[in-house]
């Protein structure tokens, strides 16, 4: 699969609904679900590498620096979830200037510490509930917002380190305080506009 082809054809991606092969030729379009899955694969891999090679290695293993929600005040590394969110905000800002690259992603939760990260649309709410109730499965749907039709995918976000779980459980603003490692704590929502 050529990434350039994949990116260029986002807006036309839904014209092909089923791919018989994972090999694409020049000029082909990519199914929107494959596009969302590919985006998630990149996002999740980058976050995983940050968690392993930066946070695990420097904070847990070598103990040379801390990671903190209040990274500025504490002169610390940003948390993996914060890095992910900052990336999302930057993508949103940069994508506004690139008409052909029109998508958004966010980290949301049914139990957010920051209420801004709660689901807002029905698709987001349904998707977050589905991935929490059906571990190992993703959620895909279509929704219309402001007159535009979107393909919306939701992927589970799992608590993988003691600090993720303990911070959420102990935070003064948390609506849920019994998370365990391995629990689905939220989800990544990827939204791509599609033709009506």
């Amino acid at each position: 699969m050529k990434l350039s082809t994949l990116v260029i054809n986002i807006s036309a991606a839904v014209t092909i609904t089923a791919a018989s092969s994972n090999v694409y030729a020049a000029g082909d379009t990519v199914p929107v679900k494959a596009m969302a899955d590919a985006l998630h694969l990149v996002l999740d891999s980058d976050r995983t590498i940050y968690t392993r090679k930066i946070v695990n290695r420097l904070v847990k293993k070598e103990k040379v620096i801390k990671a903190s929600e209040h990274f500025d005040d504490d002169k610390a590394l940003v948390l993996p979830a914060q890095m992910f969110r900052f990336g999302s905000e930057l993508v949103q800002k940069r994508a506004e200037k690139i008409p052909d690259v029109n998508f958004s992603y966010s980290l949301q939760s049914l139990w957010p510490i920051n209420k801004q990260n709660a689901p807002k649309t029905k698709a987001e709410k349904d998707g977050l509930k589905f991935v929490a109730d059906n571990k190992g499965k993703n959620y895909y749907t279509e929704e219309t917002l402001g007159g535009t039709k979107y393909f919306t995918a939701v992927y589970a976000d799992t608590g993988v380190a003691p600090v993720c779980v303990s911070c959420h459980n102990k935070h003064k603003d948390t609506p849920k305080n019994d998370f365990k490692i391995g629990d689905v704590m939220g989800g990544v929502v990827i939204r791509i506009p599609i033709d009506g």
Partner: peptide, 8 residues
């Protein structure tokens, strides 16, 4: 939670 799914 992790070992059944390959999480992390």
């Amino acid at each position: 939670g992790c070992h059944a799914y390959g999480t992390a």
